[in-house]
């Protein structure tokens, strides 16, 4: 792997620059502190509304209720942002990875043990999110950690899975979210409205798909390139020759 030089020529900025900027930042912090200070010490925000409707939302964890029901549109778009980042990273082609083939035996041993645990724990977080802290993003992050461990051990996705199958899993969460959200439009509801009695199950389904997509996306971001593309060392101009 190409090493990034961290200690490049960074000359220390002059005392004057540092001082001026420091004073400006202090003033900014002071005025922000004043703004925060002037807020009332007691404020319910939307907690009353959240609690009032939580029975209709299908889950009892208020944060999950906000994320996957009241403000599920934000969550849907945010799955889009994650996917978009992956599109962006893949479009950059990655930097040629000439990693050493040396595999740390301790890392190897530990990850054989840890990866299954991580996957299990990810499932637990997904399940528990309905009624206690947890949920798709936390579960996805743990799943991604398993992926990162695998990559650190020079693990490679089998070639037959690295093309369409991988891409399919990456978009699954978003597509299922849209499909379920829009499905009920045909039953005279609005986009992202779920019947209260089905909401719990639907949210779990969406979250399960989202966990998978989030976990794999984050791991793929760590890898930094499209695994189905062999070599990226050459920069393809591809513009109208």
């Amino acid at each position: 792997m190409r090493k990034i030089k961290l200690k490049i020529l960074e000359k220390k900025p002059s005392l004057f620059t540092r001082l001026t900027l420091g004073i400006l930042m202090f003033l900014l912090a002071a005025s922000l502190a004043y703004a925060v200070w002037s807020l009332p010490t007691q404020a319910l925000g939307l907690s009353a509304e959240v609690a009032k409707n939580v029975e209709m939302s299908g889950v009892s964890n208020p944060v999950t209720a906000v994320l996957l029901n009241y403000r599920s549109y934000d969550t849907l778009l945010e799955l889009g942002v994650l996917l978009l980042a992956l599109f962006g990273v893949w479009s950059l082609g990655g930097v040629s990875a000439n990693k050493s083939s040396f595999v740390n035996p301790i890392l190897d041993f530990l990850s054989r043990f840890l990866v299954p645990v991580f996957i299990l724990f990810s499932g637990y977080l997904l399940w528990v999110g309905g009624f206690a802290p947890g949920g798709a993003f936390q579960a996805g992050a743990v799943l991604a950690a398993a992926g990162v461990l695998l990559f650190l051990n020079d693990w490679q996705l089998e070639r037959k899975y690295s093309g369409f199958s991988l891409r399919f899993v990456l978009v699954l969460g978003l597509v299922l979210f849209v499909a379920i959200g829009f499905g009920f439009v045909f039953l005279d509801r609005v986009f992202l409205e779920y019947p209260p009695q089905l909401a719990g199950g639907l949210i779990l389904l969406i979250e399960a798909a989202a966990t998978l997509s989030i976990g794999i996306s984050l791991a793929a971001l760590f890898l930094g390139r499209d695994p189905s593309v062999k070599s990226d060392s050459k920069i393809d101009t591809g513009v109208h020759k």
Partner: peptide, 24 residues
């Protein structure tokens, strides 16, 4: 206004990636 933040990020990230598409 929070949803606008998310849409701004969609626009920002895709615009940045599109600029980089030229390479070089």
């Amino acid at each position: 206004i929070f949803n606008l933040f998310v849409t701004l990020e969609i626009i920002g990230l895709s615009a940045v990636a599109l600029v980089a598409l030229s390479g070089g």
